[in-house]
Nucleic acid binder design. Structure first.
Lengths: 126, 126
DNA sequence: GTACTAGTTCGACTTTTGTCGTACCGTCGG
DNA sequence: CCGACGGTACGACAAAAGTCGAACTAGTAC
């Protein structure tokens, strides 16, 4: 996809169509901290979430229930929030549901190679 | 104590001279887990330790006091042990002192690009 | 021997993190 | 209007992780 120059921000994950809901509050690219990102990714469940988002990102945004995680809703909120506040995912509100995607360009810019490690990860095999 | 701590790993960081003390117990290369490694590296003090080891590794092994960390000894023991049990550093006993170095080859083999992120990290600037 | 030194081990404490129930809110379809 | 739905907020609890003092061990040096 050629980068159709969107309005405001410098780098975007994808050429995003206009009229999207505003992203929920998140750290700016320059504020991403390696410790924080690593800490967020050191939780197996969150690693699963991010990996799944990376592997199946063609459908762009994903609501929270799409992941098939058998945890209560309040636990999921907790983890998605942790990922967003670490700067790993961006979340937007679409009516009822809140959809997430990985901030690929931002993370690649700040921590090149990191997402490849996540993609290559396998849940508990060696 | 984490589960299997096999000695005698397959790959060596350097062509090590003979007659070295045996490394302290550590996970084998194939047992390195991304979650564990990320978790160990998500602690700023440990990140500092690993980065310093990477940047000044020409002198190979470093005793514990060399790092200039103003924490009590028991705290340092704690962090070095965490790094070793995560498979990030190898430690050997040289008489009184215990010297550490990063398992560069092992980590590069399992998690390529990870150590570059650590090297590029800066303690608390943005 | 004594003393010094690098480091461990133990245990107590504090802080952080994860887990989850309950109550709640806003949107959509009748 | 109502209820179902996707999700948040709060708060209590449990588990994990960091901090550190005190006592200890093992080499080295005198």
């Amino acid at each position: 996809m050629p980068p159709t120059m969107a309005a405001a921000p410098a780098i975007r994950e994808l050429p995003e169509p206009p009229g999207l809901p505003e992203p929920l509050p998140e750290p700016a690219v320059d504020d991403l901290r390696l410790e924080t990102v690593l800490s967020a990714l050191s939780e197996p469940l969150r690693l699963r979430i991010v990996r799944k988002l990376l592997l199946e990102r063609e459908s762009f945004d994903h609501p929270c229930g799409w992941f098939g995680l058998d945890r209560p809703k309040s636990s999921l909120t907790h983890h998605f929030k942790a990922l967003r506040e670490a700067g790993i995912i961006r979340q937007r509100q679409y009516g009822l549901e809140r959809r997430s995607h990985v901030r690929v360009a931002d993370l690649d810019a700040r921590f090149p190679g990191l997402l490849a490690l996540v993609t290559a990860w396998t849940p508990d095999a060696r």
